[in-house]
């Protein structure tokens, strides 16, 4: 276990370096001169003069060579300085920090909702395979995987905010305002988790040790919850990283629709206005978060499943 942890931690710096290179490289895909674009945005309708562009290039440090720019970005990042937004001229790191809380709230709410529905539904639908409940759960999983979050979001707004006026459509601050965005965001991971849990529960229920438990005369619920569930949940834990990716990708769209002041809204604005320091900082930040969450999930999996610790790829 320790050896595994050390090995994983040893590759972290390399991965972080790679993440920084990818995030930084994104900027240089851009056609045209960022300095000129910034000036065009600051003074709409005016063509910036060559001298102005040159001055801003120097100010933003864009006149240095690429490796020099990269080195400066990395050393700044290590010191917690991700540069300044072209648009708002605020420090990127502070913006990311401020926007993290709303996104964390929204994704946590959506994940809780997804788990709350998917775990019992997945278990029950595996226990009563072919029942009406099973068919309903599979239908929800099928539909949930195909509904675009943006269409669902507008459907929810039209029904619950416009027609019924039960819930506020947009905004951030009160608990009622989190309901619609969290529901819109939870459907896709809910569908995916439900399929996963149902399938792994079905597989586990067919195992020998479960048959043994039944043969001992244990109640079916004891067999399911004490013996099968623990193993059946392992694939769901293993899929944590993938689900985090879903949630964050979904948050980008859902936050834009519901005017939710989180990271997703920030990145969309930044991408549309080509605010590169913000895009770079955001992409690097998200990748680091996903990396760390994956690491924790892998460790949790190894603690829960001794087979992995001894090198058997049992799953």
């Amino acid at each position: 276990m320790m050896a595994y942890l050390v090995r994983r931690l040893a590759t972290l710096p390399l991965l972080l370096l790679g993440i920084s290179a990818v995030s930084f490289g994104l900027l240089n895909l851009a056609p045209g001169d960022p300095a000129e674009m910034v000036l065009r945005q600051r003074n709409p309708g005016q063509l910036p003069s060559a001298a102005e562009v040159e001055a801003l290039r120097r100010e933003l440090g864009l006149d240095a060579s690429l490796p020099a720019q990269y080195a400066r970005w990395v050393s700044g990042t290590l010191a917690g300085d991700l540069g300044q937004s072209y648009g708002t001229e605020q420090p990127v790191a502070a913006q990311l920090a401020r926007r993290t809380v709303p996104t964390a709230l929204l994704t946590a709410g959506a994940l809780a909702l997804a788990l709350l529905v998917a775990v019992p539904a997945g278990i029950l639908s595996a226990q009563r395979r072919g029942s009406l409940l099973d068919i309903a759960a599979r239908l929800v999983a099928l539909v949930g995987a195909a509904v675009p979050s943006y269409a669902l979001a507008y459907g929810l707004i039209i029904l619950f905010a416009v027609k019924l006026s039960w819930l506020p459509a947009v905004g951030y601050g009160s608990p009622a305002q989190v309901v619609l965005p969290a529901v819109a965001l939870s459907l896709a991971p809910m569908a995916q988790l439900m399929r996963l849990i149902r399938a792994s529960m079905l597989e586990t229920l067919g195992q020998d040790y479960v048959r043994t438990a039944r043969a001992k005369g244990l109640a079916e619920q004891t067999v399911s919850f004490r013996h099968a569930l623990r193993n059946a949940l392992l694939p769901a834990v293993a899929a944590t990283g993938v689900n985090l990716g879903y949630l964050l990708s979904g948050a980008v769209i859902v936050e834009t629709i519901f005017s939710w002041p989180g990271l997703g809204q920030l990145i969309v604005e930044a991408a549309l206005t080509r605010d590169y320091p913000v895009v770079q900082g955001f992409v690097a930040y998200i990748a680091v978060v996903v990396l760390l969450v994956n690491l924790v999930a892998d460790l949790a999996l190894r603690i829960a499943d001794p087979r992995l610790r001894f090198g058997h790829q049992g799953m």
């Binding site: 993440i19 980008v252 969309v268 991408a271 992409v283």
Partner: peptide, 18 residues
């Protein structure tokens, strides 16, 4: 390395840059 980036977010960044 690339698997650490959620694909929609990476695509968003690339499309924004282009």
């Amino acid at each position: 390395l690339l698997l650490a980036f959620p694909s929609l977010i990476l695509a968003l960044a690339v499309a924004g840059a282009l």
